[in-house]
Design a protein around this nucleic acid. Structure first.
Lengths: 101, 101
DNA sequence: TTAATATATCGTTTATAGACGATAAACGAT
DNA sequence: ATCGTTTATCGTCTATAAACGATATATTAA
C-alpha cells in the first residue's frame, strides 16, 4: 500500500472559518471515529469503513464527503476505488489552533 | 470581578460523544469567537457579547445555550444577569483529546 | 407598585444535517 | 459488450440549526 499525502500545504495560521468548518465536521461521533481510524490505518477505501460502522454505504459516503469538504480528509480516486486519508498538514494546524485556545 | 469556576471536575477521559458535542458546539465561527473571548476575559455577561457581534440578543443567547449544553461553557445566574465562563476543566480535557488524535 | 434592565424562551422562516434505499457512474475482468 | 465491484449522487423524510422579532421572566431601582 502506498503512503498517500494530500500535500495541501496551505501553511500559515488557520482562520476561524476553517477552524469552525473542521470542528463542525468533527461534530458527529461517527466522523470522529472515521478520522481516528484513518489516522491509525493511514489510508483506506470507503468499503472498509462501511464494514466497521452500522450505517449504510450512502451514509458513510456522505460523512466522508463532509470530512473532505472541511479539508481534514482527502480522497484519491484510483480506478473504481477512492483512497481516503487524513490531511496531516491540516490536522496539525487544526491541533495547533485548539492547543492555542 | 470575581473569578468564577464551573467546578465540574468529571475527571477522566472524555468519551467520543462528549468530544463530538464540543466539536459541534465549536462548529460555528461566532461560537468559537465567543469561547475565545470568554477565555481571555474570564467572565462576562450576555450583553457584553451581544455588543461585540452583529447579531441579535436572542441569537447570541441561543449560541450561549448551545455552548452550555456541550459543557464547554457554564453560566451562573446572579440577579438579573448571567455570568458566563469557560469550564477550564472541560476545555483542558477537550484539548487533550484533540492533542492525542 | 411600577419601571428599567438583563436574559431566556417562543414562534416563525429558511437552510442544512442525518439516515435510508435506489440508482448512476467509473472501472476491471471476463 | 456485459457483469461485478466500488463509490457517489439523488430523492425523500425527519430533525436540528441559524437567524429574527416578540414576549416572558427575574431582579434591582425608583
Amino acid at each position: 500500500m502506498k503512503t498517500r499525502n494530500c500535500e495541501t500545504a496551505t501553511a500559515g495560521r488557520m482562520d476561524t472559518e476553517q477552524m469552525a468548518g473542521i470542528c463542525k465536521a468533527l461534530g458527529h461521533p461517527t466522523r470522529i471515529k472515521i478520522v481516528e481510524y484513518l489516522i491509525d490505518i493511514n489510508t483506506c477505501v470507503c468499503g472498509e469503513i462501511v464494514n466497521i460502522f452500522p450505517f449504510s454505504q450512502s451514509t458513510i459516503s456522505q460523512h466522508l464527503k463532509l470530512l473532505k469538504e472541511s479539508g481534514i480528509v482527502c480522497g484519491e480516486v484510483e480506478g473504481p476505488k477512492t483512497y481516503f486519508c487524513v490531511d496531516r498538514d491540516v490536522l496539525e494546524r487544526f491541533k495547533a489552533c485548539i492547543r492555542d485556545l
